[in-house]
Amino acid sequence: MSLSSTVDGGRRLTAGRHTLGLFRSELRLVFGRARTQAGLGVLAAVPLLIGIAIKLSGSDGDAEGFLGQVAGNGLFLIVASLGLSLPFFLPTAVTVISGESLAGEASLGTLRTMLTAPAGRSRLLAAKMVALAVFCLAATMTIWISGLIVGFILFPVGDVLLLSGTTVSLGEGLLRALLIAIVISLSLLGLAGIGLFVSSLTSTPLAAMAATFGAFIVLGIMTAIPQLHAIHPWLLIYRWQSFADLLRDPPYWHEIARNLLVQGAYLVVFYTAAWARLTSRDIT
């Protein structure tokens, strides 16, 4: 293509190509912040602390579950850390980042500038959601990598004992741990969707974070009340623990699929609600 034809087309010709610029910029905004890096740092410390605690206590597999297997096989540090981060650390991180996403821009006033740039409201929302999804994956992968490093340094590593009593190679074990990290990051998407929606309602990021975390706590309490068992399958975190089904032989997909369907349902509902809110909202 000659130079003149490129110039000729001007903006129109290249218009479609630059759509990704906003998404890249959004990732820089999320991951460039000290707050995000500190959060990922805390998550990276989880395997380290667990690993050191187990090493110091010298316990040799007395504990039940994945924690008890760490001393025998460092690979289980990944699984145990992911499992232990799931009820609190990971949701907290997702709550902070998602609560910040739109409310943060609104409170800074940059939302105005972004919209007159123009970013386009639907497109900006999509970029925010993609960045949140990438953050969810980054958060679980941080634990995965940290758990891998710490586990391999502190503990012996070898073939992996599955829940069903069969043993698979270390490579397959790592692959399954990776799948667990991915499944857990997908499990966080429903919460991220709620956070994004709440964030679209307010111009105060702290309020958005508090409300999102409050919703998470309420869902947790509802999941713990047996009388509500009829609606349990619909609750966001009811099947969060199903990631462990990946350690069966063969993996049991039913609950994982259900969990992901529930996450998808929450995501669709709250994402479209955030869309309705953002596209109809007066930006002041």
Binding site: G65, Q69, L163, S164, G165, A244, Y252
Partner: peptide, 28 residues
């Protein structure tokens, strides 16, 4: 095999021997 939460209890027999395995205690 009963699929418990993050654990599994297995009973199996191939006709010659029978096994019971509890993953949470790692006992067979």
């Amino acid at each position: 095999s009963v699929l418990d939460n993050q654990a599994e209890r297995v009973w199996t027999t191939d006709g010659k021997s029978a096994w019971a395995y509890d993953s949470s205690r790692r006992e067979a």
